[in-house]
Nucleic acid binder design. Structure first.
Length: 129
RNA sequence: CUACAAACCCGAACUAUCGUGCUACUGAAAAGUAGUAAGGAAAGUCUGGACAACAUAGAGCAAUUUACCAGUGAAUAGCUGGUUAUGCAAAAGCAUAAAGACAGUGCCACAGAAAAUAACUACCUCAAACUAUUGAGGAAAAGGUGAAAACGUAAGGUAAGAGCUUACGAUAUUUUGCAGUAAUGUAAGAUAUGGGUAAACCUUAAAUGUUGCAAUGCCACGUAUAGAAACGCUUGAGGGCUGCUCGUCCAAGUUUCAGGGUAGGCAGCAAUAGAUUGUGAUAGUAAUAUUACAACAAGAUAAAUGAUAGUUUAGAAACAGAAUCCGGCUUAUGAGGUUUGUAGUAAU
RNA sequence: CGGGUGGUGGCGCAGUCCGGUAGCGUACUUGUAUGGGGUGCAAGGGGUCGCUGGUUCGAAUCCAGUCCACCCGA
């Protein structure tokens, strides 16, 4: 039985070229405290249907431990709520690159992110259509 | 017991579920199983090396750094022990400093006569003048200023005075004896006493080749074998990773502009190997060294350690995230514990 | 990873090399001029010189540590 709530190496957005394209051409929207950039690409650009990256500004958080902590929390919440997005993308026969940027200036609680994440996924699906 | 001081320790553990990097195994694949996974500072980048590239790395100047003694170490501006001075503390103890101001140059506001080959007031001698002073010289005791004023006190001495002389004392240098490996201490003697500042320039001694893993070696992919300008082709442009000069070596292309392409991977790089890690023994006051046994223990690249629930504990809350690797320094750090010392109080 | 620059009244900057008085513009306050406002003129207030130590008789200035902001190379 394959796992559902995964977030492994193949699902991470890693290509430098693709990232540049994403920020140059992709669309974006904000669901406080997270800014979402995304770009639809042709099929077979990468192995999985969705690649997603996570980022925190060094300007807002000086300490590396804080940045690591936020990235971990975002990843954790994404991991638990990603299922609807994957199902939708598969039905459209395309692939998507997404980048989640944390823009607030204070450390978040995991519980608030857990509440926000479904809204983000929902909005993302709407924007794709 | 209280207060203080010093040297250290620790930096949560376990179970379950979901999830991550790496390695091994299984599998056609999807995936699964097992093992393993941040720090004492991983930080600051202040330093010393390893390693790599470059003329087997040259000479001079410049620049930078260090500066009591001994030991230690791969090495250092580190560490350990010791010496002297100053400051803080009731003490234990802590902090800072220690080549040179008789090599030279500079600076020392205000005040003061004067801030460095001293002379304003006052003192003394001589001459003029005749009671008001003026000139020449002597001398550096008294005065006030200042952060700092030309060794201190007393006596002798003198025209007046003065280390000018003597006694006692202070400081510095030095000789000899004793103690110590030495810095130095101590006793006796001799000589000297004209400020401070070297975290001002500087002098002396010693040290430093430069650049750094984005080094370096290799594979793959791709563009325009295309365009313009300048300099040059042995009468030598330019280059050889050093601020300048010299010397020396290479040398037929080099530099700039506009435009185009790529921005992936392997090694280096993470362990059968080491200035490695842990425990013990021996030598040493200690830093450290020698040795025995055991271990092999993060290795990512938009960058892996997280989440939830429960149990233990008085409590789980500090500072904080490896990026080529080690040594040191500096800075940040919760709660608690151990040992030693000093002072006080009480009891025996 | 490596290298560099800056921090001085509310704001923008001198002064730091070569140590003794902190200054300029603008803003602010008061007065004056005007019927009133602006411009002008005159006067005034306001600064732990990022922080902590040290050197010195004396530190914005010299030295060491530390915090913050910004820039450059690849």
């Amino acid at each position: 039985m394959p796992k559902i709530f995964t977030y492994n190496k193949q699902e991470k957005l890693k290509s430098r070229k693709l990232l540049e394209e994403l920020f140059a051409q992709g669309n974006s929207f904000v669901v406080h405290p997270i800014k979402v950039n995304f770009l639809l690409v042709e099929n077979n650009t990468f192995k999985t249907s969705v690649q997603i990256g996570v980022g925190v500004s060094k300007r807002n958080f000086k300490k590396a431990t804080d940045r690591n902590r936020i990235k971990r929390l975002i990843r954790e919440s994404y991991r638990l709520h990603k299922l609807p997005l994957h199902q939708h993308i598969k039905s459209t026969n395309k692939q998507i690159a997404v980048f989640l940027l944390y823009i607030d200036k204070e450390l978040p609680q995991l519980s608030t992110l857990q509440i926000k994440m479904p809204f983000i996924i929902e909005k993302l699906i709407k924007q794709i259509n």
